[in-house]
Design a protein around this nucleic acid. Structure first.
Lengths: 146, 146
DNA sequence: TTGAAAGTTTAGCATAGGCTAAGTTATATG
DNA sequence: CATATAACTTAGCCTATGCTAAACTTTCAA
């Protein structure tokens, strides 16, 4: 196995990036949910299952199931057949997400893409942007009238 | 249900972004695999299970299972206990991914982040960047000596 | 006040993508 | 050339995230 045994020194380094991506993904859904719940509470006074499902474009039952996980993670609280509330932790995560989201979206606009694209792409990108990159985007915005 | 019935006109528009993110995610893994297989073939002449597993940071069995899906999707071909090959379609996807990846990574570097961060963040970001945003990044690179 | 509509939950299914443990094949070398 | 080791595969488990269909609550309005 001469060929197969040759060590790849950077393998561990490489794998770190993919591990981060996988970790990002599992955190992503929770982030999207709490951010959306926060928006709904601010916009309409309360967050309901149906509205979340509609905005996310998934079935009601899917939302219910996910909310159970968020409750276990102590990000939300809810009583059967009642509106959904965020815990302190939940609000913190929502605010964090909003801040990040806003920077990425404004950044894309400043880069010259259309509003529609900025809105859509920022949704996917926001969860994969490190603090360092976020700071670089911030600086760019400061220089380019964000 | 006065409150709950109030229509949210932008709900469909909003949900489109999340739908794209979910679609991106299911395409993402396939993209990472074929890109990595292409790299291995170029670097070492062949792609083997173990190397993919090591670079991705997952167990061997996980790779095997995923490769089955890629075979069903006609992106790769393989015989039991032998190396993995890309189909024409697989090569196309790999090239596409590499091109995208390179632009995003160079873009992040040009934006001023460290090499390490550019490498890691680009891995997560590349799959969520639309053609329009990619073009904007390219333009930025042209202006800023990419 | 009661029934229909709207909203919520439960049950049951599917797929993706992880894992470990155990078995099978290939190969390098003594 | 026999065998130890490395590589690969299979089996079986788990969780996350989607779905539909059916059951249950709430609430509005006749």
């Amino acid at each position: 196995m001469a060929l197969a045994t040759k060590k790849i020194p950077s393998a561990k380094l490489r794998s770190a990036a993919f591990k981060r991506v996988r970790a990002d993904h599992s955190a992503e859904l929770a982030g999207d949910y709490v951010e959306m719940i926060a928006d709904l509470i601010d916009e309409r006074g309360e967050a309901r299952c149906t509205d979340i499902a509609m905005r996310l474009g998934v079935a009601n039952a899917t939302v219910v199931k996910t909310l159970k996980r968020l409750q276990t993670a102590e990000l939300i609280t809810q009583e059967p057949y009642r509106a959904i509330f965020l815990t302190v932790e939940g609000w913190k995560m929502a605010e964090d997400g909003r801040r990040k989201h806003a920077i990425v979206e404004k950044f894309l606009l400043a880069l010259g893409v259309s509003q529609e694209t900025a809105r859509i792409d920022s949704e996917g990108i926001e969860h994969h942007v490190s603090t360092e990159t976020l700071r670089a985007m911030g600086k760019f915005l400061a220089r380019n009238g964000g």
